[in-house]
Design a protein around this nucleic acid. Structure first.
Length: 280
DNA sequence: CGGCAAACCTGCGAGC
DNA sequence: TGCTCGCAGGTTTGCC
């Protein structure tokens, strides 16, 4: 579910309610998710003031007033929902509950438990194993066609697979890779190395445009994802190819009977959607 | 090292 | 109705 636009949306929603607030209650309801929670996590968070919240790739980073930071990942099905109902009974998959000094309640809910929450010293974040190897932020100025080309050079793997690799570019997932490749007119089957150069000059702005539009729409809600307010995202209504196998390509303006419409195939065990006529 | 399949876990829709 | 199967936004591990 949550790729860069969804995590960015959640990050902004959390920032509004948490930055400057003190955590007065932390309820940890299981030992961990993808990995065990740190020893005594509730005790180490209780009483701390939140000084900043930012996003790196698909990770949320929450800085505390004692020099520590929370690293949080939503996995496939994670949600962070804020309410104003302290003491409300937790739901089946509410794993960690944070309460602030002004009555906000943040529920970390994750049915599939692929999410993650851990602690790191702020000064050690850059070198943290989860974060150290990440590639460039696609919305930052350093993400240029030249920079992307350098990371694709020499790679035989399909461009679809390469863009899912978080060390190539940070934050893309299955949805936005498909959408960006469509808008750039690049086949997901092309060897990554062949995208270096002129195609990368189309791909970089396509990635940026798709991500910005998705953030503006509050992300994409397919099954699990909601914003911190509980509202759905609505970028799924703007998908050109993702989850649209057999439907008409928005670029071709041809009958599905003639073109076959959007095609679905499997690459590296994930579904890929594309239009063979407009992407080569 | 590069690339791919499987594993992690739950829920849901489709088909029988 | 109820069962089984396949599939789902991500990441890591282990095997060629």
């Amino acid at each position: 579910m949550p790729e860069l636009p969804e995590v960015e949306t959640v990050c902004r929603g959390l920032g509004v309610r948490l930055v400057g607030r003190r955590l007065v209650r932390v309820d940890q309801r299981r030992p961990g998710l993808r990995q065990p929670f740190p020893e005594d996590m509730p005790a180490r968070l209780t009483g701390r003031r939140v000084t900043a919240i930012r996003r790196r790739a698909k990770y949320l980073l929450m800085s505390l007033d004692d020099g520590w930071a929370v690293i949080l990942h939503l996995g496939m099905s994670g949600r962070l929902v804020i309410s104003d109902a302290p003491g409300a009974p937790p739901g089946r998959h509410d794993h960690v509950i944070l309460e602030t000094d002004d009555g906000a309640v943040v529920m970390f809910n994750d049915a599939r438990r692929f999410g993650l929450m851990t602690l790191s010293l702020e000064t050690g974040l850059a070198a943290h194993p989860l974060l150290a190897g990440l590639g460039p932020e696609p919305l930052a100025p350093g993400f240029t066609p030249k920079a992307l080309s350098a990371r694709l050079a020499g790679r035989a793997t399909p461009i679809k697979t390469a863009l899912l690799d978080q060390t190539v570019v940070a934050g893309l997932g299955n949805i936005y890779v498909a959408e960006a490749l469509f808008h750039a007119g690049i086949s997901p089957l092309r060897p990554a190395a062949s995208v270096a150069g002129p195609p990368a000059a189309r791909l970089v702005p396509a990635i940026r445009r798709v991500l910005k539009a998705a953030i503006a729409a509050g992300g994409s809600s397919l099954r699990d994802y909601v914003q911190t307010s509980g509202e759905l995202g609505y970028f799924q209504h703007q998908f050109a190819v993702y989850d649209r196998a057999g439907l008409p390509c928005p670029g071709c303006h041809c009958a599905v009977a003639e073109t076959g419409g959007i095609q679905r195939l499997t690459q590296a065990n994930r579904s890929t959607y594309y239009c063979p006529r407009r992407q080569d």
